[in-house]
Write a protein that binds this DNA or RNA. Sequence first.
RNA 1: GGUCCCGUAGCUCAGGUGGAUAGAGCGCAAGAUUCCUAAUCUUGAGGCCGGUGGUUCGAGUCCACCCGGGAUCACCA
Length: 595
Amino acid sequence: MSQSIMSQSILQTLSVHLGTAFSAINLPAEYGRVTISDKSAPFQCNGAMAAAKLAKKSPRDIAALIVQRLAGNTDIALAEIAGPGFINLTPSDILLKSRIDDLAVDARVGAIKADVLEKIVVDFGGANVAKPMHVGHLRSAVIGEALKRLLRFRGHTVIGDVHLGDWGLQMGHLISELQEEQPDLIYFDAGVKNGYPEDSPVTMTDMSRLYPQASAKSKNDPERLKKSQIATAELQAGRPGYRALLEHFIRVSIEYLKKGYGELGVEYDLWKGEASVDPLIGGMIDAMKAQGITEESDGALIIPVDDNYDMEKRKGIPPVMLRARTGAVLYHTTDLATLLDRKNEINPDLILYVVDQRQATHFEQVFRAAVKAGWYKRTQLEHLGFGTVNGKDGKPFTTRAGGVLKLSDLTEMMRTAAAERLEKSGIGQDFGSVERADIANKVGMAALKFADLQNQRTTNYVFDVERFVSFEGKTGPYLLYAAVRIKSLLRKASKAGVEPGEIIPLHQAEQRLVLTLDGFNRALASAEAKRMPHILCDHVYTLAQAFSKFYADCPVLADDVPNDLKSSRLALAALTLRQLELGLNLLGIETPERM
RNA sequence: GGUCCCGUAGCUCAGGUGGAUAGAGCGCAAGAUUCCUAAUCUUGAGGCCGGUGGUUCGAGUCCACCCGGGAUCACCA
């Protein structure tokens, strides 16, 4: 379906009119750009002041000429000059009506696709093999999923990849610690080359015990650390027993992670990891050497990425470490091999990494090396960093005991709080236990995700459990509540035989709701451009607010409301629900039928 | 020391590409339900936008320099 510029949005339509008016007095149409206003009218144009110098006229004179040109325009109810030359604009009822008619029949409720459609890899999640998911994994999963859905909805081809951490020292820790506990396992018999059992020798619980155990021992015991390092090197060199173990570790972990991510509504297209690109590393390093972009330094193989780097003074960006003195391959190397793999297998236009802001330097290094190798342009690679989740003390979030908070404990906390709130309100008493649990889950997850996503991505935020479970104000449950009220209204209307009809926005609250609905596409486009889900959060919240106001001011099914008004308001409510649920879905938030 | 991020209401945060009297939520004060879910709505108090200069008709927004907080800086991932 092709959409004319005129119907893209009310704001766009007004901009075209103002642009035409500026052109008519021989000034660039760009000065006609209209913006949202929080003053006396819903929109304003500030171009008269900007144009003053060029036109050699006073801003107010220019504004007067523009306003003259707009006289008789059926899309504009009122154009007023204010202050030094602001033009305040009120759209006409005709324009509101025509726009809401367009939205009502649009399956995407006003959202149009991006101009340029790209193939995009979103690398998010950041989970590691053998480690339980904890609070630190929350943001990458939630933000990454939202971006993935947003970009896909905007028309792009999007591939989500979890990119598991399964190749480093942690694997050596795990293998060597398992050997200390169960030295007789067949995997440790260097003479055996194949025919290993199909069932894993360890469970997820075992692994989450073994790893910290080994890590703790190694901290104070260089000999123990050495064992892990040797195991790592042997694994990477391809020792069959260790590779067989790794496969078990990965399989068991993925099964566990799928559950954990599933709880958050997070899904991946690819479950690749560092280990999966191992076969590329040898050839990649040879090719890089042949290109002449590598150097030997202190026994390690590096790629300098900053001409002004000075190791003594710690100035500039350190080089990429392709291979350590020990011969082991590092984080840099696997990330580069992954970039090569993606180039070969997917050839994406853009790769987005949704990873902790603290790794900014790492990505800058890797990206520069990938550019040096000629695989990508710098603009094709973006690190979308995010801040840490902090406790009330401003330090990264921990449990009361000071330990790491498991993600499953966190989600359980949210569900319990939601269930309690449900009980307290006394509404869900006639619901079955299955539905109550489902509602508690959706409310809890909505609270958790919205609390995370509404923060600007790049900054740290404070995780305040009490605030999160309060469920009032700018929260996920507020949004669900708005949606659920509409659903309830629709059910009641259907019972009463009231059909949605033509929308005629007359009441101030109705008009405000229409103007808010009109902003959906703008929010989506802006959220995409900045890769910032909180812009979409802002929109759905404003929408829920505008609806709540409408709901309080404009009775729909009351006896004294005329039939056509009932139908109009019902249709407006139904339209609001469609956009609200769509927006929430893009944020990864599900709506219950009632709550 | 180098690089990056941050500093806006008592608290947690927005601020659409430089515009008028800087906005939300929580908290505080006061109010609203004969009527579609009060997890709601309305009203109010609360600000030298870290500081000083600069660019501009106009700066929370752009530039420079300070002050304060955080992250990170080659063989962990």
